[in-house]
Design a binder for these strands. Structure first.
Length: 937
DNA sequence: GACATCACG
DNA sequence: ACGTACGTGATGTCT
């Protein structure tokens, strides 16, 4: 028998292991119900449980908990055992009782044995089940269970984030741990130890070494018997620390002879208890689950259909004869919708529109959304508009295909869009602003963008409306694909659909967005987000919309000529490279290139590999081999030109707008973890400048026309100034206040020489340290960067922190704050959450610590320039200038400046940028004018 | 779609 | 023993 066949499938769930994982999976977006209870753990656990029930169809099942007191036996054998384990988070403790209620509602037995941990109980039961002819699945992500795996007892690692669950049998265990047999798992765990379980392990032995030793010696004991075959430190460790190794092995061993009952009848899977299910999920406010589990009939109304029947009384909702429609769509076996009545209405006649507008004008807040023929907001045609001002109710106003006719209908709603009293709610409102500008409507503030609101609440989350609807409303909206098909050349177009087909979709979007606003608004009203949202992010939306619409002019002929030149150089380099290689290959393929350099030409014996096992050929590695073979400099040159041609020179002319011939990027406001903007389609925030050949490309970005010039204004050292301000370090603040060259001033302090005697090398090293500080670098990082020894790097860093001692205090404080509160924040209270800050894994924790240092710096700089943009924009509007703000590149603003406004604009910009914030360190803006972007630097 | 590489601040 | 500086987006290869 190759695969075990059995009718009896037993699932044993390691409760705490699943709960812990569920809790931390929601660390970035904890689920909080209206009572303020964090329900992440219960929600995640329930998801996993339902997943197992639905997908695996167990015949028998139990959930095993660790008892409150923990295990007795292991504590006796090793007192430090679990003594240092982090305390169970509050959010888990408060969820244990509800989770047990949920399991009980499912009629699933809960097993808890005093004095024994869940793994011991599950281990014992799996052995008993095996004898009774069961196929057992141990549900846990914990690798320690590997030792229990047999052909008939498997590990079941629940899926996460859409990933499918993994089932590990003996074969998979041996592969994952690189062992010959499952019997070696305990030796393996004992050798390498486990910091989170406080199993010490052998000093200096990690997973790789553990696998290697066991492949060679078979067991831990056998290693001790043959220490003569080891050498160096390893030999010493295995000769002197045998008892530690054996103890670790015993700590890792899961007990399989616990006294526990194996009651087949009790383990049998039963139907859930509907009353208990309803009660517990209502308590926790998990709306979606009850329906999922009990599978009740679904009803939605299709108001659009009502209209077809000619029975629509638009606003006398009670008189509407609602057509009930059974929805059978299923998602992973469950029904899609809840039983809920919605009232979505199609508004088509002038009378109905008038009635709708009157209603809109009476509201304090209205959610709106536009439907269009495509995603290109500068040219897409409007297909319709939807509105909602009450959960469950929405209206859809179709607009005709003909532009002028559509414009006339949009015009009817101008009083609404231009009202300064009604709060206009939308998801990603920048898009709708741009669409409406095509119809000559400028939407007036106040506005509330639910996408931006959620970005501030949870910056690293997904921000799409569909995702938020599922997360916060347990509601899966009609997908756009249902309407117009999947992405690709056959994708249809909203313009080809009848209003009746679009209405429910459009209404639903407005309805959902309205409901999301009600959930997010209270969060935004809190101290730390209110000003950030209303005074910074929302005002910025209109500015970005204007910048995107404005675009920037490029000289395509210049780029085409340059493309030819690069093409010729590339062809020549390619021939040379292949000749030197003595073979034909694809120079663009890092994989082939690596093989050519290190296998075929054998340029270096100690070539580095990437994590996927290929030879690494990145620039810094090639740079270190530049003198090893004449092919290397050719490849570096080839790479440079190829990048420029394929990323910038060739695509840019093709991205010119067909109507105005300008390049229109999109600025994304809800993408970065730190609060910066990002730019795409095309990305105009990474146009080359560092190399001679790259700089050429900047010449192709030109002023609008002969009446204009480009002006680039950038903040000088904004991030270092912010460190100085945040840390209030006397020495660093003084350096900025006196207007010194900060890198030279730093060098003078670090090396103890007079400012005038600072050498070029010293200044450049100081500059590297100043940069490194921003990123929370280590001595290793600096030594790599400067090509000096780690000892030297450490000396420089030590000296730096002696001179700027408060900077060090500040950095330590940032990490401490992250540990304590779980987040760090910018000067405008923008938060970044760092759930990994207390990770037991030093690498993971290191990343979080560097983020704790970097995020407030990078994020505060982003705050400053955003405020500057708002100030500049307001002043420009006040002055009524022809000049326009067109780009933002993190610390730089680019303008089309009308030649009559040069002096005015220079003063206006400098003033707005330098007084955007008032910190103890002055902000300095520098600017330059030119006919193209290169000259403006 | 993942990965490697490289453009910018 | 581990890995090693923060934040992005676009391109080409390869599966």
């Amino acid at each position: 028998m190759l695969t075990p066949e059995t009718d009896k499938k037993l699932f044993l769930i390691d409760a705490y292991a699943i709960i812990f994982r569920a809790y931390f999976a929601f660390a970035k977006n904890p689920r909080i119900n209206s009572k303020g209870l964090n329900t992440s753990a219960a929600f995640g656990f329930t998801n996993s449980l339902i997943d197992v029930l639905k997908k695996e169809k167990p015949t028998h099942i139990a959930v095993v908990f660790d008892p409150p007191g923990g295990s007795v036996t292991r504590k006796e054998s090793y007192e430090a055992y679990k003594a240092h384990r982090n305390e169970t988070p509050e959010g888990i403790i408060t969820n244990i009782e509800p989770i047990k209620r949920i399991i009980d509602a499912f009629n699933i037995p809960i097993i808890e044995v005093e004095g024994y941990e869940a793994d011991d109980v599950i281990g014992t039961m799996s052995k008993m089940a095996e004898k009774a002819g069961y196929l057992t699945y141990m549900v846990t992500p914990d690798k320690d269970y590997g030792q229990l795996v047999t052909e008939r007892s498997l590990m079941y690692k629940p899926g996460r984030g859409g990933e499918p669950a993994q089932i590990w049998g003996p074969k998979e265990i041996c592969e994952k741990f690189e062992l010959d047999s499952v019997d070696q798992v305990i030796d393996y765990l004992g050798l390498m130890g486990d910091a989170s379980d406080n199993i010490p392990g052998m000093p200096g032995i990690g997973p790789k070494t553990a696998s290697k030793l066991l492949k060679e010696f078979g067991t831990m004991e056998n290693i001790f018997a043959h220490t003569d075959q080891l050498k160096g430190k390893q030999k010493e460790v295995f000769e002197t620390q045998q008892s530690l190794g054996l103890l670790s092995k015993e700590l890792a061993r899961i007990i399989t002879d616990v006294t526990v009952e194996f009651n087949e009848e009790q383990l049998e899977l039963n139907d859930p208890d509907p009353d208990k299910i309803r009660a517990v999920f209502a308590d926790l406010e998990f709306k979606g689950f009850t329906q999922k589990i009990l599978g009740e009939e679904l009803v939605v109304t299709a108001a659009g259909k009502v209209n077809e029947l000619g029975q629509l009384d638009l606003f006398g909702v009670n008189d509407v004869e609602q057509v009930e429609q059974k929805v059978t769509a299923e998602v992973s076996g469950f029904k899609t919708f809840e039983t809920e009545t919605t009232n979505y209405q199609l508004v088509q006649t002038p009378e109905e529109r008038k009635e709708l507008l009157d209603l809109l004008m009476q509201q304090k807040e209205v959610c709106f959304d536009t439907e269009t023929t495509g995603l290109d907001s500068l040219h897409a045609d409007m297909v319709g508009m939807s509105f909602s001002f009450k959960a469950g109710e929405a209206f859809y106003v179709p607009t005709p295909v003909n532009y002028e006719a559509a414009k006339a209908i949009v015009e009817e709603f101008r009083p609404f869009f231009e009202s300064g009293d009604i709060l206009k709610i939308a998801h990603n409102v920048k898009y709708d602003l741009k669409i409406l500008r095509r119809y000559n409507v400028r939407v007036a503030y106040p506005m509330f963008d639910t996408m931006i609101a959620h970005y501030l609440i949870s910056p690293e989350s997904k921000q799409g409306m569909d995702f938020l609807a599922e997360f916060y409303l347990q509601y899966k909206p009609i997908s756009i694909e249902t309407l117009i098909g999947k992405k690709g050349k056959n994708q249809g177009n909203m313009g080809d659909l009848a209003p009746e087909e679009i209405s429910d979709y459009a209404c639903e979007d407005a309805d959902i967005t309205f409901r999301l606003k009600q959930i997010f608004a209270p969060e935004i009203e809190k101290d730390h987000l209110k000003s950030l949202f209303y005074d910074m992010e929302m005002p910025l939306v209109e500015i970005l919309a204007d910048m995107e619409r404005e675009g920037i002019a490029i000289d395509s002929q210049f780029l085409k000529d340059y493309s030819n030149q690069l093409g010729n150089q590339l062809a020549e380099l390619e021939t040379g490279i292949k000749e030197m290689a003595g073979m034909d290959f694809n120079v663009d393929s890092p994989k082939q290139l690596g093989d050519v350099l290190f296998d075929h030409l054998k340029i270096s014996a100690k070539a580095k590999k990437t994590k996927t096992g290929q030879y690494a050929t990145s620039e810094d590695i090639l740079q270190s081999l530049v003198n090893a073979h004449p092919i290397i400099p050719k490849i570096l040159e080839y790479r440079e030109y190829k990048k420029l041609k394929s990323t910038y020179v060739d695509p840019l002319p093709t991205m010119k707008d067909a109507v105005d011939g300008r390049i229109h990027t999109q600025f994304m406001q809800t993408v970065t973890a730190t609060g910066r903007l990002s730019s795409n389609n095309p990305n105009l925030q990474n146009i080359p400048i560092r190399t001679e050949a790259g700089r050429e490309i900047r010449k192709s970005f030109v002023a609008k026309n002969g009446d204009y010039q480009l002006l680039a204004a950038d903040y000088s050292q904004i991030e270092l100034r912010i460190i100085a301000a945040l840390s209030e370090d006397k020495n660093m603040v003084a350096a900025f206040q006196s207007g010194e060259d900060i890198h030279a001033a730093t060098a003078s302090k670090v090396y103890g020489v007079a400012l005038k005697d600072v050498s070029r090398e010293q200044r450049s090293a100081a500059k590297a340290v100043n940069f490194g500080i921003i990123y929370g670098q280590s001595a290793f990082g600096l030594s790599q960067n400067l090509g000096i020894s780690r000892t030297e790097a450490k000396q420089i860093i030590d000296s730096y922190f002696e001179q700027y001692s408060t900077v060090k205090t500040y950095m330590d404080g940032a990490i401490a704050q992250a540990r304590e509160k779980g987040y760090v924040e910018t000067i405008y209270k923008r938060r970044r959450y760092l759930p990994d800050i207390n990770s037991a894994n030093a690498v993971v924790r290191g990343f979080a610590e560097r983020n704790a240092i970097n995020a407030p710096i990078q994020g505060s700089a982003a705050d400053v320039i955003k405020l500057a943009m708002i100030a500049v924009y307001r002043e420009m509007k006040k002055a009524g200038v022809k000049s326009r703000l067109i780009l933002q590149v993190h610390d730089e603003l680019v303008f089309d400046i009308h030649k009559d406004e040069v002096e005015l604009m220079k003063n206006l910009i400098k003033n707005a940028m330098e007084s955007a914030v008032n910190l103890i360190v002055p902000m300095k803006a520098e600017m330059e004018l030119g006919n193209n972007w290169l000259e403006a630097h």
